[in-house]
């Protein structure tokens, strides 16, 4: 079972790299923000998978919850900032 989790985790890392393309070369700030938000969700899952693999899920689940929280707040604050500045 652990092997399966490791394989899925590696696959997720590849997906994160694909998202990183959009976060790096995205034509505007908004595209980059969308890419980073997508990376955040995937990172949350990767953290949980790491917790299962190392058998310390009670510890990793707190970290992933913080990650989800900060991802959400970061996106909302960025949106507010862009809306105020009026430029993309």
């Amino acid at each position: 079972m652990t092997q399966f989790f490791v394989i899925i985790g590696v696959g997720m890392c590849v997906l994160v790299l694909l998202c990183l393309y959009r976060a790096t070369f995205g034509p505007t700030i908004l595209n980059r923000a969308a890419g980073i938000s997508a990376i955040g969700t995937k990172t949350l899952i990767i953290l949980l998978l790491m917790g299962v693999i190392y058998d310390r899920i009670d510890m990793f689940i707190d970290i992933s919850m913080v990650y989800a929280l900060l991802n959400f707040i970061g996106t909302v604050v960025l949106a507010k900032y862009l809306e105020r500045s009026g430029e993309v």
């Binding site: 510890m59 707190d62 913080v66 929280l69 900060l70 707040i73």
Partner: peptide, 18 residues
């Protein structure tokens, strides 16, 4: 569990920012 003063303080501040 992981965390402590610094991390907790940052999350508190994040709630105020939100």
């Amino acid at each position: 569990s992981p965390g402590g003063g610094f991390q907790g303080g940052v999350i508190l501040a994040a709630s105020f920012v939100l």
